[in-house]
Amino acid sequence: MSTTDDLAFPPLLWGEEVTTDAFDHACQRALLGCDAGLVAYRITASVLQGALVFAPEVPLAQAMSMLPLCGVGFQNALGVMAPPEVAVHLDWDGGIRVNGAACGRFRCMASTSDPAQVPDWLVIGFTLPLIPASDRPGDTPDQTSLYAEGCAEVQPPALLEAWARHTLNWVNRWEDDGSRALHADWRALVQDMGEEVTQNGLSGTFLGVDEEFGMLLRDGETTHLIPLTTILEPAP
């Protein structure tokens, strides 16, 4: 297993290897006032976890763009390392898809759930299964793992480093140029756009997203807006 000393994170980011859940650890550190830029991570034979602490300077509704941003950073990182035939897509609510099947997901938590408030901290983290959860993967054809999709050559420590680099690059682009480029890249990766979906108890056609990545869901004559803040996990 790699230690923090072995992993190279870009400037402004630093790593803490944990033996517990990386997302929970990052949230606890954020709650206690750690600086932004902490990357908590856990690498085992069966799972890769990474979580990044942000200190947003914009209201939560805008800061939630960090969820799709981290997802695009992940796709960029894995897309370079995986064989060319491996397709990586993203669910609106943080799910990761590899070759169409669910393969882990992103989670998010913030110091506030008020979309208009600037949060003290925001944590975005992912869990990626490396090997199948059971000996009978045929029982769950809609669930997969990284190595089951032909990515056995992908080294988890290198994937984590690349995710951090690509994510930081996207943060800089987002801060300098706004969200137009992020919207364009994310739209090309999001699963089920134009399809019938169910989200937050509502069913309809997933038309797209608004400026802050809120889901536009058309149900008959009505178009509902589901803010991205609705998928935040409650802070302790």
Rank of each mutant, 00 (worst) to 15 (best):
V47R: 10
T3D: 12
G178K: 05
E57L: 11
G15L: 01
T19H: 10
R136I: 12
G214W: 00
P83T: 02
A101K: 15
A235K: 04
L217E: 07
D176E: 13
D142A: 11
S145D: 13
V190M: 04
S65M: 14
G100P: 07
A63Q: 01
V118F: 11
V47A: 10
Q191M: 15
D192I: 01
A133Q: 12
E149I: 10
M109R: 12
G204E: 10
D135T: 14
G100S: 08
M215T: 09
N169P: 08
D5H: 06
N76I: 04
L90Q: 09
R105V: 09
T205V: 13
R29N: 06
P157Q: 06
L67N: 00
D192Y: 02
L12R: 14
W14Y: 15
S179A: 14
P68L: 08
L69Q: 02
D21G: 10
D24W: 13
E57R: 12
T4M: 12
V72I: 06
G194M: 05
P59E: 09
L13V: 09
L182H: 08
A36V: 01
A110D: 01
M64D: 05
S65T: 15
A162G: 03
T19Q: 13
Q191T: 15
T127I: 09
L189R: 11
V39S: 03
V39I: 14
N99I: 02
W174I: 05
A110S: 09
P10N: 02
L32R: 13
G50P: 01
P157T: 09
A8K: 15
L48G: 03
G71K: 09
W163F: 11
F9M: 05
M215H: 05
G138S: 11
P68A: 08
Q62W: 08
S46Y: 07
A162T: 07
A30S: 04
V209T: 07
G71I: 01
P56E: 13
L78Y: 00
L31H: 10
P83V: 02
V72L: 08
L7K: 10
I43S: 05
E211F: 12
R187D: 08
M64G: 05
D139V: 11
M1G: 14
V72E: 03
G94T: 03
V98Y: 00
P132Q: 03
R105N: 15
A102V: 10
I43E: 13
L78A: 01
L69N: 05
L31M: 06
V72Y: 02
Q75G: 06
C27F: 00
M1T: 14
P141H: 01
